[in-house]
Design a protein around this nucleic acid. Structure first.
Lengths: 343, 343
DNA sequence: CTGTTAGCGCATTCAC
DNA sequence: GTGAATGCGCTAACAG
């Protein structure tokens, strides 16, 4: 692999001149510029980005931490981030945190050790204090789906409480009064906030929250199926289920059908996220739109603006959830309650 | 950020000694080693990996190129790769190729420019010749889901033809004789090979392939729904559909239901990939298992073995597809053909 | 506009 | 076992 030195020799100029035409940041006469360009082409020269990074103290790479690399949700997020950053010729280094504190911290250290210029973090387990301290370090961070008041300007988040409220209200508006919830893990802030929104909607309809109708899931299909199984075994009445996310809804629907329940007439179901497969579930899933791809792009924008000095970019920190109505919700029918149908 | 030099001063030793205890590759007396370690801890020293890379000519990073970052298929692949590499303290740099030749090539250049020690590629659009030439370059590559005979030892692939055969045979075994196909883009090798397997199974059952029953999809839900729509509009008889993958099947099922067709009694459907949501479709989707996570891990293993000299690893190049039977296939019923039911 | 000179932080010969 | 010296490939002052 040719080096800048060889190029300079072939072109008959100095190292610095070659560097200048590469970075295009200082005036070079057209004549010498062409000589250099020709030499580069002839040698098939490619700059060594490692050396560039060392010399310039800028690695042109940004570290991304997500809980999982698989699934539509994180996929959409990664995709949004990568497309933006890539267009700006920045490298994307990824790691998975698995929603475990130790892994998340280790991953962050890992990314810092790689001299990333910035970090985009989707973290769940680490504490606010940790994040605040981290944000005071030398390497800038942005948070996705996490709101920490002290560093609010670095948070790209969704109003989860509002989302939980909208989901529940959609059901209440259809006349449902006995709502079950299969939540996300309640130690996670987003899950907790969605539940707060749920309770708020209930209160607005003068209904009281029934702890017996709450099952804690895991944001996965299995949490949804286990949750539905538990709810049905409890033999307590409910006509609708608010699910933590689309995956949870999917699992819940599968189990409901295994119990010969008809959807949505026996049980109405609503999801959260509006992942791409929500519209392909049967019945087509009503859900709350979570614009995670746009949020990923926004996080990338934040980095472009504040780390790479692209001043023309505007940042939106808070995104709004939106109700998506499809077929998985029906009007409440008093005459049928699901547990009556289970032998 | 402390440098190795500051550590050496504090410990009262030379640069080289500090480097030695870091890399633990040369004998250092226990006493000085402890002094150095203490100094490191006191300064909260972290090695600068950029500098390490420059000096050692090894970046400890491997570049990953996938067609898309979103979706369960690529997610599972990425996840498999990352977990293995991460455990070996290697960095993962990702890029998306979007199944377009120009983008794929540009992405590969991008990753090479980042001085990756190796590349794990899931490419679709670039030619075999390009890959062969690339493999002769200085940076090792591994291919996932692509078989190129000349560099077979660098290919981690699935027997797609066998998969296509198994899927079709599953339908034929149930008595279906009029099979429609919603394929992947036929310029992609995997899609083509699956179709070859399809035809092979037909021949085994003394059936002839009917071009009218083939629709080319795009491996996405939309390809499945458009494909099913087209098939139904053609008014040509079929009782089962072989789908390019699970997403395609999902889209096809949605449209079939919109036409009041009952699944699987009116139309049997089989997918491909066995992505995580296949079992949550309704009816639960029969499909072909594609162990993409394991294949991702194997690709990582290849790199660990041949690039980072971990000799204790064994490599499997060819993975086998496997039939997964669920509920989306029923025995053929002569009395019903779907197009009769469409007004 | 262009060339010279120092480093960036570390690994790796060599000597001792 | 340890230290001194050299260079990885490039950027960034500083001269001229």
């Amino acid at each position: 692999m040719a080096t800048i030195y060889e190029v300079s020799e072939l072109a008959g100029v100095s190292l610095a001149t070659v560097s200048r035409v590469m970075n295009n940041n200082a005036r070079v006469s057209d004549k010498t510029k062409e000589k250099v360009l020709a030499a580069m082409k002839q040698l098939d020269y490619r700059p060594n980005s490692i050396a560039q990074s060392l010399a310039s103290n800028c690695s042109n790479s940004v570290g991304i931490l997500v809980s999982e690399l698989s699934g539509y949700f994180y996929g959409a997020m990664l995709s949004g981030i990568e497309s933006k950053l890539r267009a700006a010729h920045k490298h994307v280094i990824i790691a998975a945190g698995h929603a475990e504190e130790a892994t998340e911290i280790e991953s962050i250290d890992f990314l810092i050790g790689r001299n990333c210029d910035a970090l985009i973090l989707h973290v769940e387990a680490v504490s606010d204090e940790y994040l605040i301290k981290l944000s005071q370090g030398s390497i800038p961070i942005v948070l996705i789906n996490r709101y920490v008041a002290e560093i609010a300007d670095r948070c790209i988040s969704l109003n989860n409480e509002q989302g939980g409220y909208l989901a529940t209200k959609a059901l209440l508006d259809k006349g449902h009064k006995e709502l079950a919830v299969i939540s996300g893990p309640l130690w996670k802030k987003d899950a907790k906030n969605r539940l707060i929104g749920h309770k708020k909607a209930l209160k607005e309809f003068s209904l009281t929250f029934n702890q017996d109708l709450l099952v804690e899931g895991d944001y996965n299909e299995s949490g949804g199926s286990n949750g539905m199984q538990l709810l049905l075994e409890k033999k307590v009445n409910f006509t609708a289920v608010v699910c933590a996310n689309d995956e949870t809804a999917s699992g819940a629907m599968t189990v409901a059908r295994e119990h010969k329940l008809h959807l949505p007439s026996d049980i109405s179901i609503i999801g959260f996220d509006n992942t791409i497969f929500a519209r392909h579930l049967y019945p087509k899933l009503s859900t709350i739109n979570y614009p995670v791809d746009k949020m990923g792009q926004m996080a990338a924008n934040w980095v472009l603006k504040y780390v790479y000095q692209n001043d023309s970019i505007n940042i939106d920190n808070l995104f709004k959830p939106e109700l998506i109505i499809r077929d998985s919700i029906s009007a409440h029918n008093d005459s049928i309650t699901p547990n009556l149908k289970i032998s």
